[in-house]
C-alpha cells in the first residue's frame, strides 16, 4: 500500500517536473523525456561511467577512512575519559566549523589531485562518526558492565560483548550521517580542485547550458546518495534486530 502511494508520489513529482519544463523558456530547463534521452546518449558515448567511477572512488576512499578513523577515535575518547574530556571540546569546535573553509589550505598543501579530494571528503564524513561513537560509548549501561564483571569477564570481553553492541546503533547513525556529508563534499571537492568526476560534469554542462545532461548528473548523484543511505539503513536494521522486539 505504502509502496503504491510512494510510486504515485514519484509520478506526481515527474509530472510537476514536466509542467515546470513546459513553462520555463527552452534552453534553461530540460523535460523528463529530454533528460532520459540525454542519459541514453551519455551512456552510449561512455561519458557518464568514467566520471561516475572517478567520483565513487574518492567518495568510497574518503568515507571508509573516515568511518575507520572516526570509530577508533570516538571509541578511544569514550573509553579513556581523560583523553575524551581533553579532546571533546576541540572536536565539537571543529565539527561546528564549516570544513569547506579548509579547501584553499588543503589545495595549498596537497594540490588539486586525489589526495586533496579524499581529505576534503574525509574531513566532512569523520565528524559525525567520531561524535556518535563517542556518545554511544559514554552511554554504555553501567549495570550491564557490572553484571559482566560479576561473571569474571575481562576488559576485552566487556568491550566486545557490552560496550560495542551498545554503541552500534549510535555508530551506524554516525556512519550514515557521515556518508551523506561525504557525498556532498565529493561534489564540492570536484568543483573546487581539479575538475573531475560527476562534480566536473556538473560544472561542464551547467556552464554550457546543456540542461538535459546536467539533470542526468544531478539524478545520478541523488541515486548514489539514496543507494548508500538505504543500504546503511538496511544494515542498521539487520545488525540491531534485537531492538525490533522492543517496539512490538
Amino acid at each position: 500500500m505504502i509502496a503504491l502511494l510512494r510510486l504515485g508520489f514519484l509520478a506526481g513529482l515527474v509530472l510537476l517536473w514536466w509542467v515546470a519544463s513546459v513553462q520555463v523558456p527552452r534552453g534553461l530547463f530540460a523535460s523528463p523525456l529530454e533528460t532520459a534521452a540525454a542519459a541514453g546518449r551519455m551512456l552510449a558515448e561512455d561519458r557518464l561511467a568514467p566520471a561516475l567511477l572517478a567520483s565513487l572512488r574518492v567518495y568510497a576512499t574518503g568515507t571508509l577512512l573516515a568511518a575507520g578513523a572516526g570509530i577508533a577515535l570516538g571509541a578511544a575518547m569514550g573509553l579513556w575519559r581523560p583523553f575524551g574530556r581533553t579532546l571533546d571540546i576541540f572536536v565539537y569546535a571543529l565539527a561546528a566549523t564549516p570544513r569547506v573553509a579548509f579547501i584553499p589550505l588543503i589545495i595549498t598543501l596537497l594540490g588539486l589531485g586525489v589526495e586533496a579530494k579524499t581529505l576534503i571528503i574525509f574531513l566532512g564524513a569523520v565528524m559525525p562518526v567520531i561524535l556518535n561513537t563517542y556518545t554511544g560509548v559514554l552511554n554504555t549501561d553501567r549495570d550491564l558492565v557490572e553484571m559482566a564483571k560479576a561473571t569474571g569477564a575481562s576488559q576485552g570481553r566487556i568491550f566486545w560483548h557490552i560496550v560495542l553492541p551498545g554503541t552500534l546503533p549510535f555508530l551506524l547513525t554516525g556512519i550514515r550521517l557521515g556518508a551523506t556529508i561525504g557525498l556532498i563534499n565529493t561534489v564540492v571537492a570536484e568543483l573546487y580542485t581539479a575538475v573531475t568526476g560527476l562534480g566536473g560534469l556538473l560544472a561542464l554542462y551547467g556552464s554550457r547550458f546543456q540542461m538535459a545532461e546536467y539533470f542526468v548528473v544531478v539524478l545520478t548523484l541523488s541515486l548514489i546518495g539514496v543507494t548508500v543511505t538505504e543500504g546503511l539503513r538496511l544494515a542498521e536494521r539487520r545488525l540491531t534486530r534485537w531492538r525490533a522486539a522492543e517496539t512490538v
Binding site: 549495570d143 553484571m147 560479576a150 560483548h161 553492541p165 552500534l168
Partner: peptide, 16 residues
C-alpha cells in the same frame, strides 16, 4: 565470577 554468581534486581540481560 569464580567464587559466586549474582542475580541482580533489574535482571541485567544483554538485550542484543
Amino acid at each position: 565470577g569464580q567464587d559466586s554468581a549474582i542475580v541482580f534486581q533489574g535482571y541485567r540481560l544483554l538485550p542484543w
